[in-house]
């Protein structure tokens, strides 16, 4: 064998071995990327979903999803994440870990905000623009009933036994309760100006309503339909997020650029976190260390360290970011 040939073989051997190491590294990285968890953000203004690598806090991908995606929620079996495209009249099911589109369900009229009843029997979609509340069969999404609900039904929540759906009527300053079994309006009551987010306390006693036109959360005893308290918050109280301990619930204040922490036992604000840019929807990490918030006006997602209340990072995303989700979130209680 010629010396140069021997050298070639050796070199090739080295190369092959080296290539093996490289390939191993690549596949390891690819595997980690494949399982890397993303934060999923709905950019309602440009019809896209931003996928943010949670570890590096950078947007890795922006994919078209439909027209005006505002809100999202996981399916009760936690298999998929449902994105409601209001202007596309459809629901898109995403892989809730990777954010990849799995399937699309058409002919869902103007879905703005969504909710499954706790017993999973009913899927409720509220249509803010068209003043409608639609009731679907929770198992197969077949339409059960469509009700007129003026004006501007905004958010939805349920009582513990799944008998009622509470819907805020943003433009008529009311809270409505719909009986799920019959899909009829049970009652309506006046509340403050521009009610938006709605939340039922873990003890099933009260409904909390965020007054986006004012600076408080109204506490409603839903059994007696009485307003029992106004919890003063920042201006523009908008949406709620529970952070898993069954005690605290967060409320975003879009005008004052803060998030308030409300103790659900005492029904009082116990802490205030500054979040710039019009804080809207929120998601908390499972370990309770970080709060991720869509900063609606600033086209950013703001990540806050909850221990220090300092901003870790503001991540640029698409236009008018609204709903936000990640799989390893704090429990919704």
């Amino acid at each position: 064998m010629l010396p140069c040939a021997r050298f070639f073989i050796d070199e090739c051997g080295v190369l092959v071995a080296f290539r093996g190491v490289i390939l191993g590294l690549i596949s390891a990285v690819a595997a980690s990327v494949a399982h890397a968890e993303v934060a999923i953000v709905l950019n309602s203004g440009d019809g896209t979903v931003s996928l943010i690598d949670k570890a590096t806090m950078t947007e890795t991908k922006r994919i078209p999803v439909g027209k005006e995606p505002h809100h999202l929620m996981a399916t009760p079996d936690d298999k998929f994440l449902i994105v409601a495209n209001a202007a596309s009249n459809d629901l898109v099911f995403l892989d809730r870990v990777t954010g990849e589109i799995q399937r699309r369900l058409d002919k869902i009229s103007d879905p703005y905000q969504l909710g499954f009843s706790p017993d999973r029997k009913y899927f409720v979609s509220v249509s803010l623009r068209l003043d409608r509340v639609d009731f679907y069969n929770g198992a197969d999404f077949s339409l059960l009933k469509r009700l007129a609900a003026p004006k501007a039904p905004s958010h939805v929540a349920f009582n513990a036994d799944s008998s009622l759906a509470f819907v805020t009527l943003q433009d008529s300053n009311e809270l409505a309760a719909f009986e799920l079994k019959t899909q009829t309006l049970k009652w309506k009551m006046p509340v403050g100006q521009m009610p938006a987010g709605v939340w039922v306390t873990p003890d099933d006693k009260y409904v909390l309503v965020g007054m986006t036109g004012e600076d408080y959360v109204e506490v409603i005893d839903w059994r007696t339909q009485k307003s029992v308290k106004k919890i003063t918050t920042g201006k523009g109280a908008h949406n709620f997020l529970a952070v898993g301990d069954g005690k605290r619930v967060y409320v975003s204040n879009r005008v004052s650029n803060t998030v308030n922490v409300i103790d659900q036992d005492t029904l009082a604000v116990v802490d205030t976190i500054p979040v710039p840019g019009g804080p809207d929807c929120m998601e908390a990490t499972k370990d309770g260390k970080q709060l991720w918030v869509t900063s609606r006006w600033a086209r950013k997602v703001t990540v806050v360290d909850l221990a220090t209340k300092k901003i870790i990072k503001q991540i640029p995303v698409g236009k008018s970011p609204h709903g936000i989700y990640f799989a390893s979130h704090a429990a919704r209680k």
Partner: peptide, 22 residues
């Protein structure tokens, strides 16, 4: 856009009682 909106428009809107039209 955010600067103009948050700095001028939104406070005026809220003061005038139209905060919900943000």
């Amino acid at each position: 856009h955010a600067h103009v909106f948050e700095g001028t428009v939104l406070p005026l809107l809220h003061q005038a009682g139209f905060g919900g039209y943000a």
